[in-house]
């Protein structure tokens, strides 16, 4: 029981991170109907930026954790947002109106480019980070097994919940959110009503990237290491999460992220840790076969 509880906590933490990344996939898909395959790299860059920032802040002597976290998060979000905007500008916008395959390929190209770029600039070695948020408390002790809840886990889940709530309100209530939803439904019509569709699409990339930056920062805080290849795996898992939840649906991305995190952690805990990625991908395959619209996705309605 204690072991189960511990895994549940770990799974929710991991799921929160996947969920944040998955929002970026689902938003971009919702608005242009395409997968942003460079999104995992954006997350990886967010992680690198936060390592660099933490190190720099340490050198500057800013060590009060809340302030340092705030600065790092803001800087990481701003920089990765610029990356997100650039990806859209270079890999998607020039190809708008061409076949669906073309932007897919250019996005994969972008992903390879960003990976290699970071590898060249930061080196191929794993970069460590001193633990920033340490400690935690023992929830309960059963059968000689202590259930540990780290402050970092509380921080991750709390920040994710806050961000997702803010983001949902933003999309549901604000004018920009309304424009996002309008473009999701009918880009042509939105344009004819005076919505700048290009800018709205850019914004979807930018917002997704900013959330991925938060996920990147969290992963660095949680695991304490980062290297240039983390974007690929996390990207595919978050993509799986978005598909599982129903691509294009925001609550779906959040739910999907949570489920993928839980599945991965429980699989590692009760079966074999070597096959945890296989478990996640098997879910992707099963969902695609049996429920292509995902858990919360709406069935595709043929437009007349």
């Amino acid at each position: 029981m204690a072991y189960f509880l511990q895994q549940l906590i770990n799974g929710i933490t991991l799921g929160a991170i996947y969920g944040l990344i998955a929002i970026g996939y689902t938003m971009v898909y919702g608005i242009i109907g395409m997968i942003n395959f460079a999104h995992g790299e954006i997350y990886m860059i967010g992680a690198f930026i936060s390592v660099i920032c933490f190190t720099a802040l340490g050198l500057l002597g800013i060590t009060w954790v809340p302030l340092a976290l705030l600065i790092v998060l803001v800087i990481a979000m701003v920089f990765t947002a610029v990356y997100g905007w650039t990806v859209e500008r270079i890999a998607y916008r020039p190809l708008r109106g061409s076949s669906r395959l073309a932007p897919l390929i250019s996005a994969i190209g972008m992903s390879i480019f960003l990976q290699n770029d970071v590898q060249l600039l930061q080196g191929a070695r794993i970069k460590p980070l001193q633990p920033v948020i340490e400690g935690g408390f023992i929830l309960t002790e059963m059968d000689g097994f202590a259930v540990h809840l780290g402050y970092i886990q509380i921080f991750i889940v709390f920040l994710t919940v806050v961000l997702m709530a803010l983001f949902s309100v933003f999309i549901a209530r604000t004018d920009i959110g309304r424009a996002q939803r309008a473009c999701e439904q009918d880009r042509t019509m939105a344009g004819l009503l005076g919505v700048n569709v290009d800018r709205t699409i850019s914004l979807a990339f930018v917002m997704g990237a900013a959330l991925a930056a938060v996920a990147g920062t969290m992963v660095v805080l949680y695991y304490g290491v980062v290297h240039f290849y983390i974007g690929f795996l996390a990207g595919i898992k978050a993509f799986t999460a978005a598909v599982l939840g129903g691509i294009g649906s925001l609550p779906g991305a959040m739910l999907g992220g949570l489920l993928i995190g839980l599945i991965e952690v429980f699989w590692s805990a009760y079966f074999t840790i070597e096959y945890k990625d296989v478990a996640a991908y098997s879910i992707l395959v099963l969902v695609l076969i049996f429920r292509p619209t995902g858990l919360l996705g709406k069935p595709e309605v043929e437009k007349v």
């Binding site: 004018d175 920009i176 309304r178 424009a179 939803r181 309008a182 999701e184 439904q185 009918d186 042509t188 019509m189 939105a190 009503l193 005076g194 919505v195 007349v304």
Partner: peptide, 24 residues
């Protein structure tokens, strides 16, 4: 010719979406 409302939105939101520019 065919109706192209934003069917996922409320009636009021459809009318507000058309005023996006002004609001921006």
């Amino acid at each position: 010719q065919n109706i192209r409302l934003f069917t996922g939105m409320s009636v009021l939101e459809n009318l507000l979406a058309a005023q996006h520019n002004k609001l921006m």
